[in-house]
């Protein structure tokens, strides 16, 4: 099974990128590949390069990769309950990470750890270093994970669904915190999520993934305002919005995402697409300019379709 198939993209230093997709779209696998966290027999990276600050990460020896992981690229995960080891104090785990990547004494590491907790707005950071993970709430634990991720001043932070397990008011706190920290330190952030709302307030650029490939890329405003790929367009139409009081049916994307063991021929979105034509069954569309400078879409019809003029009610999917 190809979970991710021919995905290529660049990220600038300090850029905040949103990677959006439904389950099975390959967004998490992409991130795990960057961190080289996919190991046989679970899976392997068949071909490709991942270049980070001039270095091909896929060619690095495992020892050097360990320095990159947690040092120059940090990652935080969805579930703050399982990503902290319950038998060690939060301080132990922070200090371990810091001493692994920075050449400092244990005493200094403890001070850095306390600062890191302070930076994520955990009250009384010095005292809380000695607490165990179960003494923190879900939101606080995710703050600890962020502190751990940022403690070594990475250049890239990969956040995989960091707020999905949290309540909405806690999510707002965490996203606000991440935005502040990323802006202050100039850290590039790759935010992986299924929630289009979360990326809207956080990201400069967005790539939409579907069935293992990127279907659309653009800056946030353009992509939300003028989606060029029918999938992006359908996804936005499927979303209920807090600020809109519509009683009519939602424009849903019909069907379900394809099996990656046996994906459709041609464009992988063709079984669900409202605008499907013969060419869509024949060849896989490459990402192409769509008339807007910053925006590219993997759709044969990208330049011809003007999705914004289409009356949604006319093509409602079942």
């Amino acid at each position: 099974m190809r979970a991710v198939d021919g995905v290529s993209f660049d990220m600038m230093a300090g850029e905040r990128r949103g990677v959006v997709g439904e389950s099975g779209s390959g967004k998490s696998v992409t991130a795990m590949s960057i961190m080289r966290l996919i190991e046989p027999p679970a899976g392997e990276i068949v071909t490709g390069t991942i270049e980070f600050q001039g270095q091909n990460l896929l060619a690095l020896p495992e020892d050097d990769m360990q320095d990159v992981r947690g040092g120059r690229i940090a990652m935080i995960f969805q579930d703050p309950m399982t990503s902290l080891n319950p038998v060690y104090t939060v301080g132990d785990q922070l200090i371990e990470t810091i001493m692994l990547h920075q050449h400092v004494s244990k005493h200094d590491a403890r001070r850095i750890a306390a600062d890191a907790l302070g930076d994520v707005q955990i009250p009384e950071p010095m005292a809380r270093l000695d607490d165990y993970p179960h003494q923190f709430s879900g939101g606080m634990r995710q703050r600890v994970m962020i502190a751990m991720g940022l403690s070594c001043n990475p250049d890239l932070l990969i956040a995989d669904e960091p707020t999905t397990a949290l309540d909405v008011t806690t999510q707002a706190q965490i996203m606000d915190l991440m935005l502040k920290l990323a802006e202050d330190r100039g850290t590039a952030v790759m935010l992986i999520t299924h929630d289009l709302g979360v990326v809207a307030g956080f990201c400069d650029t967005i790539q939409v993934m579907y069935a293992g490939g990127i279907v659309e890329y653009g800056n946030a405003t353009d992509l939300f305002g003028n989606p060029q790929h029918p999938y992006t367009w359908g996804l936005l139409g499927s979303m209920t919005r807090l600020d809109e009081s519509h009683t009519e049916r939602l424009h849903s994307v019909r069907g379900a995402p394809p099996s990656l063991i046996n994906p459709p021929l041609g464009c992988r979105f063709n079984p669900r697409c409202d605008f499907v034509q013969d060419i869509c069954h024949d060849s896989y569309p490459a990402l192409r300019e769509s008339g807007r400078e910053s925006q590219i879409a993997a759709c044969h019809l990208a330049t011809e379709l003007d999705l914004n003029t289409i009356d949604v009610t006319g093509v409602v999917g079942s």
Binding site: G6, S8, F9, N262, L265
Partner: peptide, 15 residues
């Protein structure tokens, strides 16, 4: 400008 490329994988359709 970002350079992106998507390649297809092969496989039969699922019907």
């Amino acid at each position: 400008m970002t350079d992106l490329l998507n390649r297809p994988g092969d496989g039969a359709s699922d019907d």
